[in-house]
């Protein structure tokens, strides 16, 4: 089966500046995939190469088995980080025009837009000028522009910026439903908790190179220290194999760092034997993507 996106050892420089040194990854159909990295890491350049705005100096990009270009253009939806809508047009006229550029005839575009505008709570604003809409509304409108032609691959850069929690949830639902239909999402964001929540796999780029690549849960476990997180109440007695106990926050959560050779299962058994301490929650301690991001980027 042809993958929606395959990137093999691509590199791109601008004059003396190396924007992308060597990046490879693949994204499968029906996946929500996170493209991560610090500012200036090469994410946007990589996205622009996927979109055929720039051509790579080296390496190859394949979209649906072919090279980027006219044949793939209509199968891609794009939400850029820098939002761009025609502020002097009405919302409906603006979206109809952008849909036409993606190959939809005006009547079909209007029909589809009616559904999307209703779904994203913008139906009452179709006659307003885009410039008169709030940032959050413009963000949702831009989101509709990226989705209205029903692309097979959706590339979104910071999709939740400017959205309140209600709209964030709305967009998350849309993305999940989109992926559930076998379509692919490539999401670039710095909001790591949303990556943990939505994405199955990730690639992290730093200084133009891939520094992390794989399933989100595997990456987190890969960075896990030999520790467990425990919540409960009562008096915790000395546990064999535990090197240190560190309180975590105000809710009584404890981080138990284990000595070499001690496994979480051994600690779980030992905790179960302590009559003076009632365990309410036990988990192998894995770092958040946020922590991993900082550790990787800072070289910690």
């Amino acid at each position: 089966m042809m993958l929606p996106l395959q990137i093999e050892h691509v590199a791109k420089s601008f004059a003396q500046t190396v924007a992308v040194r060597d990046v490879s990854f693949e994204v499968g159909a029906g996946e929500i995939f996170a493209l991560l990295g610090p500012n200036g890491a090469g994410k946007t350049t990589t996205v622009r190469m996927i979109l055929d705005i720039f051509r790579p100096d080296h390496g190859q990009i394949r979209l649906f088995g072919g090279l980027p270009g006219a044949q793939a253009r209509d199968r891609i939806g794009y939400l850029p980080e820098e939002r761009g809508l025609y502020r002097s047009l009405t919302l409906l006229d603006c979206l109809v025009y952008l849909a036409q550029l993606k190959g939809l005839a005006a009547p079909e575009a209007r029909r589809r837009l009616a559904g999307w505008l209703e779904r994203l709570d913008l139906a009452d604003h179709t006659r307003k000028q885009v410039g008169a809409l709030s940032r959050g509304m413009q963000q949702k409108a831009q989101f509709i522009a990226a989705l209205v032609h029903e692309p097979d691959l959706l590339i979104i850069d910071e999709p939740f910026a400017a959205l309140d929690p209600v709209n964030t949830r709305l967009i998350k639902d849309v993305l999940r439903a989109f992926a559930a239909r076998g379509k692919t999402v490539v999401m670039s964001t710095h909001q790591m908790h949303l990556v943990e929540e939505l994405a199955e796999r990730l690639v992290m780029i730093d200084h133009g190179e891939v520094v992390l690549y794989g399933r989100v849960d595997e990456v987190r476990h890969q960075f896990a220290a030999n520790a467990v997180q425990v919540e409960g109440h009562g008096r915790l007695e000395q546990l064999p194999g535990v090197a240190t106990i560190e309180p975590q926050g105000a809710n009584g959560s404890l981080l138990l760092r284990l000595a070499n050779g001690t496994t979480p299962q051994q600690i779980f058994s030992a905790l179960a034997g302590q009559s003076g301490y009632v365990v309410e929650r036990f988990a192998v301690a894995v770092p958040s993507l946020d922590e991993i991001f900082v550790r990787v980027v800072a070289g910690a």
Binding site: R87, L98, K102
Partner: peptide, 16 residues
Amino acid sequence: EEKENRTMEIVTTSVA
């Protein structure tokens, strides 16, 4: 203007 208001990026990824 389209460069300034960022619509250029949308247009260039939609048409040749």
